[in-house]
Design a protein around this nucleic acid. Structure first.
Length: 258
DNA sequence: ATGGCTGAGCTACTCAGA
């Protein structure tokens, strides 16, 4: 089974790119972030035509997450977190894999910049609530997969120039500590676990030729609870969609499990 | 390089992203 996570930066502006990606990569389940549209404007039919059912937690103009899937997703929830600003940033559901019930959680963590504003406080509070939520979820079911746009650079090698980001909402130590706190609940950062020293990115800015210069960062992640690590086949950052016309600034990350 | 692109909503320009 292939599960992909991709911040698409508007599902409607990106629909052709997304369908092209699906044709090429054929994921069973696709986690989308930043769909930037309300539920009623989501392109359900476009995905239905190619065999995917959509579960959507939309929002006008900003944020918004969705899970689209070829296989049945049960017990879809959009209220795992009571969001202080009522933003649409988390959607979860359950699948069965070899008789194991797995809790799938798709997140879009607040950016948090600039750091001297309430946006940064919102990010810290959101992450704190998220960690509390995950602790509770683990008590109910220890098989947990979390994926999405974390807006966290976990370590220095996860960005082209760490000095530029050590005082940024994506790279500040207190934010990176939240990521470690999550891992300490019993998760692995699957990409880093399988690629100990490799420097690959999932995001490149639109401007200043960041893509061409490979000025990127690794901020989209798959976290898998330790008891599921034996199910991993592979993890891959698929850079192809970032090279296309009218791309998202993020590229998909793909996990294969069995 | 603290915004040099991009998208939404709207239809001139702001807000947001990272």
């Amino acid at each position: 089974m292939k599960i992909t996570s991709w911040n698409v930066n508007s599902v409607r502006a990106r629909i052709t790119n997304i369908k092209d990606y699906i044709k090429q990569a054929s994921p069973d389940i696709l986690f989308l972030q930043e769909i930037k549209t309300q539920d009623e404007s989501f392109p359900y039919d476009e995905f239905k035509k190619i065999g995917y059912k959509s579960h959507v937690f939309g929002q006008k103009s900003y944020n918004g997450v969705a899970i689209i899937s070829k296989i049945e997703i049960k017990n879809v929830k959009k209220d795992l977190i009571k969001d202080d600003l009522n933003q649409s940033r988390i959607i979860s559901g359950e699948i069965l894999l070899k008789k194991k019930k797995i809790n799938l959680i798709n997140i879009y963590v607040p950016n948090g910049n600039p750091i001297d504003t309430d946006k940064y406080d919102y990010k810290k509070k959101w992450l704190k609530k998220f960690i509390t939520t995950i602790k509770k979820e683990l008590h109910k079911n220890s098989n947990v997969l979390i994926a999405g746009d974390f807006n966290i650079i976990p370590e220095e090698l996860d960005v082209y120039d760490f000095k530029r980001y050590e005082n940024d909402a994506l790279g500040k130590l207190e934010i990176r500590k939240k990521f470690r706190e999550l891992l300490n609940l019993g998760f692995k950062d699957v990409y880093r676990d399988k690629n100990k020293n490799k420097q690959e990115y999932t995001f490149w800015d639109y401007f200043a030729g960041s893509w061409q210069k490979n000025y990127g960062m690794r901020i989209d992640h798959f976290l898998l609870s330790n008891n599921l690590l034996d199910n991993i086949i592979s993890i891959n950052i698929n850079k192809d969609p970032r090279s296309k016309i009218k791309p998202s600034d993020h590229t998909p990350i793909e996990l294969k499990i069995n």
